[in-house]
Write a protein that binds this DNA or RNA. Structure first.
Lengths: 216, 216
DNA sequence: ATCGCGTGTTTACGTTGTAATCATGCTTGA
DNA sequence: TCAAGCATGATTACAACGTAAACACGCGAT
């Protein structure tokens, strides 16, 4: 058979590059193909359709940076490392959360490996497997939710947009919000994430250290 | 002038109906217009473009259900009410989070009113305005993050999809996940949310009851 | 050598967002 | 009362999209 000049990984990598530069809307079959000196239709030999391509992109990003090995022995350090890792990924690929919100959940091999790493953080603690899953999803959900709102605007006006919004409208209506908030919204974002992460981990720790008999 | 037969609110409402039935992709200028017995181009007299329409849809949903008045006196009850309210909205309009992930953040009048309600929950506590904002965003982020993954798949196979994924692949690779997990994933979702919410609120309470001098 | 099939290309079609242009009829100044 | 003006919606048109269908090519097996 004619030896293939395109591979699925090549295509997914090229698509990720396109998305990093131009956003999810720029991930066009023709554009991704063009980056590989191929026609847009060539991609369909390796990918079912555009949606499947985006799912593959999501799974590729999940496995792009591996969690630290060996895993920190204490569950709190492990979950903090995981949360920070995910957080960086969301901003390295601002289209990522929009992709997970649009396509149906991806449970690819990379995602499974990540879950395996994460769930093992609770090894040795007196919790059921289902509780492990729920506690883990608290951390990941918090990070995803916070990043969801803030990964998008960076593409254009960045802080400018928020400064106008908060100053113009908010200053009159929301006396509770300090006026200087708009200034360093993006610089504070990492700090805000770290702050909230500690609260979330506190809540989990409170549960883990409570007597199992008193748990709901 | 010819009296308008279309209003901006009508258009936004029709678009929300279309999205509820067919998802965000179904929100087409022509389709929304058709629901109002109008051409697709007619919408452009009241809405800048499709993206602005979706932003208007987001703000409309934010204000669709008001938070309970009067606000529960204890901050924990107020935040729990807020979180449950948002949670219901995400599933009433499964396209909502995908819209916020795609468009840039919406800070419309409804959103500002909601933030005002929420921030007042912390009145009387010894926290700065910025801390109020951060604590609030922990709760909202957690809810958004958890819903982000789970509002999408319901459109098609629902639990079927997860059952296959978890059973087929996960059963071999993820011994930590109980096999019966896939059965009642969706029924347990509300319970999972409530469980995580209590952990998050515990973490916030731990912060609020700690001496202000020892806070970071 | 030749057959078959895996690979990429070309062409084509329906749908999308939206710019440009037109048709219409209410509102307003005289 | 009546003509002008303009806001509103309809029509037309176009580039770009996803992708189905048909094609051309060339290596592996026979």
């Amino acid at each position: 058979m004619a030896r293939p000049s395109l591979s699925r990984e090549q295509i997914v990598s090229a698509a990720i590059e396109v998305a990093d530069e131009g956003g999810l809307d720029a991930v066009t079959m023709r554009l991704v193909g063009q980056r590989l000196n191929a026609s847009g239709m060539a991609l369909y030999r390796h990918v079912a359709n555009r949606e499947a391509l985006i799912e593959a992109m999501v799974d590729a990003v999940v496995g792009e940076f591996a969690y630290p090995e060996p895993r920190p022995p204490h569950w709190r350090d492990a979950l903090a490392a995981l949360a920070n890792q995910d957080w960086r990924s969301y901003f390295a690929h601002p289209w990522f959360l929009a992709a997970t919100a649009t396509c149906r959940p991806v449970l690819g091999p990379k995602m499974l490996a990540a879950m395996e790493w994460a769930l093992a953080s609770f090894d040795g603690l007196d919790v059921t497997a289902l509780e492990k899953l729920h506690l883990l999803s608290i951390v990941t959900s918090y990070g995803q939710g916070l990043a969801l709102t803030w990964t998008q605007p960076d593409r254009e006006g960045s802080g400018q947009y928020w400064r106008e919004q908060l100053r113009g409208v908010g200053h009159r209506r929301l006396e509770a919000i300090p006026a200087e908030l708009g200034d360093d919204v993006e610089l504070d974002l990492d700090r805000q994430f770290a702050f909230g992460l500690e609260r979330v981990l506190d809540g989990i720790e409170m549960y883990l250290t409570s007597p199992p008999a008193r748990r709901p």
